[in-house]
């Protein structure tokens, strides 16, 4: 048995501490490499009220993403973005909040489980969300990530049965990602009723923070979701603004508005 790795639990500890201090958690998402100044954007977002930052490593076939993140991913790939380059950039950056990468399994497989896990850890990344790795398939990756001290954040969905939810949560590290609605990422006019149900069911089973994403697009919606959930993940609404040319300042302003929303201000 190897001793517990030094950075294990950084993400969970950080988010739990914030939550236990009474804060709701804000986790904005940015697609890495989608524009020249994406790191500046990431810094601006991190400095505007984010508790952690989700950074997407773009994949050619993003199965759980809607049109906005598809477009950002395509742009990033056309700019020559690779996982190695993104992680090299992140290694040099100091965002001041924990970074969680979101990516698809093929990028991990191609690099190799252990190499990807250690590269993430060396780059200062604290967690990983891999949506095409359900509980039955996550083993080899999760083991490598555990060994490297990278938290594998597991997802629970409105369709997840209660016994299964327990097993997924047990395997989750960092926080639990509640899928707020049956569907792909994208902005929606209203929060689905399933968001509160999923958050409530997950929270009843764990002390890990439970953050809800997919279809949370406005400060009002974020506030609504946070009545039950510990926090929100906001992706498409931010990325769409960036695709429309918002830049670091616009991204910061939108993030700050989300912060005010969940703080009830």
């Amino acid at each position: 048995m190897s001793p517990p790795p030094p950075v294990a639990g950084v993400l969970a500890d950080h988010l739990r501490r914030r939550r236990d201090d009474g804060a709701k958690l804000l986790v904005p998402y940015v697609t890495a490499g989608m524009q020249d100044d994406w790191l500046t954007v990431a810094e601006a977002v991190a400095a505007s009220g984010a508790d952690a930052l989700e950074v997407g490593l773009p994949f050619s076939d993003p199965m759980i993403d809607g049109p906005v993140i598809q477009a950002a991913s395509l742009r990033a790939l056309q700019r020559g973005t690779t996982p190695r380059r993104v992680l090299a950039d992140l290694a040099l950056a100091d965002l001041g909040v924990p970074i969680v990468v979101m990516t698809y399994y093929n990028l991990i497989l191609r690099m190799g489980h252990r190499r990807m896990a250690s590269l993430l850890a060396e780059s200062g990344v604290t967690g990983a969300i891999v949506p095409d790795l359900p509980l039955e398939e996550v083993g080899p990756w999760a083991t490598a990530a555990d060994e490297a001290g990278v938290a594998t954040v597991m997802l629970v969905a409105p369709s997840t049965g209660s016994e299964r939810m327990g097993r997924i949560i047990e395997r989750s590290r960092g926080f639990v990602y509640g899928i707020g609605r049956m569907g792909v990422t994208g902005e929606r006019a209203a929060v689905a009723a399933s968001a509160a149900l999923v958050a409530g069911a997950a929270k009843a089973r764990t002390d890990l923070p439970v953050c809800v994403g997919i279809g949370v697009s406005t400060p009002e919606q974020a506030a609504e979701v946070c009545r039950v959930a510990d926090g929100v993940i906001v992706g498409s609404a931010l990325v769409r603004r960036l695709l429309d040319g918002a830049g670091p300042d616009g991204a910061a302003a939108f993030t700050a508005s989300l912060r005010r929303g969940i703080d009830g201000g």
């Binding site: 095409d132 039955e136 997802l155």
Partner: peptide, 20 residues
């Protein structure tokens, strides 16, 4: 139940599709 043909196959889908 794991849908494996040797090392190939499996069920690599988002959690929202597992039940289906």
């Amino acid at each position: 139940p794991t849908g494996r043909f040797g090392e190939f196959g499996g069920r690599f889908v988002p959690e929202s599709l597992v039940a289906a």
